[in-house]
Design a protein around this nucleic acid. Structure first.
Length: 219
DNA sequence: AAAACGGGGGC
DNA sequence: GCCCCAGTTTT
């Protein structure tokens, strides 16, 4: 079996398996719709925060401000109280206000669709920027979070030390037809089965296709 | 009581 | 490359 055949099998199986998993992140993104601004804001809110908490905070914030212009009118304190209790709520409130200001002043109130432009925004790194590119604009991109990084290495599909390296390796190795959906599939797998510690390999639908590189178990 | 969680940024 | 960040959940 070639690498391309293997990853194709993996994607097929995960597409099926995902249907059985009630994945909060899918629910979250579904609620956010495809508006790039909402995806951007919700993704910023989601960092180090549970999806249910993120969804609730996003709902409250969007009720008051669902555009950069409206968001800019709120004070940092108001934003912070609306998004509480997501992690780093003070820092995120500050960043969101600054993001709103930049969007209004430099991008005509629109979210840029270009990765490099997105990366200039405060609190926006490669994970967030690529999620906006792939989910907000449906443009080619690979959103590598720790799930994607961890699982791609466990599978033996890449051998990388950082999520950024993984992104670049996947740009070379992963068939382009899978770029946009790979994050969603592996996040689902990561949350249900392929956890950082003590993954439930015996329940994993792709165990037979996995090299189990560096799997750790707690003592 | 401690570890786990986990992206971005500062150094 | 290393380490900090906030607060809740899991072990």
């Amino acid at each position: 079996m070639t690498e391309k055949e293997r990853i194709s099998r993996i994607v097929e199986i995960l597409r099926e398996a995902k249907k059985e998993w009630a994945v909060p992140v899918v629910t979250l993104m579904g609620q956010m719709g495809t508006d790039p601004f909402k995806i951007l804001v919700a993704t910023v809110l989601s960092l180090r925060t549970k999806d249910e908490v993120t969804a609730e905070a996003a709902r409250r914030l969007f009720q008051v401000a669902d555009t950069p212009e409206k968001l800019l009118k709120l004070s940092e304190e108001e934003i912070a109280s609306l998004i509480y209790p997501v992690g780093f709520y003070n820092r995120k409130a500050k960043n969101l206000k600054e993001i709103a200001r930049i969007l209004v002043e430099h991008y005509g109130g629109q979210v840029p669709s270009d990765l490099e432009e997105l990366l200039k925004l405060p609190g926006v790194g490669r994970k967030t920027a690529n999620l906006v590119v792939t989910q907000g604009f449906k443009k080619p991109g690979i959103c590598v979070d720790t799930h994607v990084h961890r699982i791609m290495n466990r599978l033996g599909f890449v051998k990388t030390k950082t999520p950024e390296e993984t992104e670049f390796a996947l740009r070379e190795k992963l068939p382009k037809e899978f770029w946009i959906e790979i994050n969603d599939l592996l996040v689902a797998l990561g949350q249900h089965i392929c956890r950082p510690i003590s993954p439930k390999c015996s329940q994993c639908p792709i165990e037979h296709l996995c090299k189990k590189v560096g799997v750790k178990r707690s003592r």
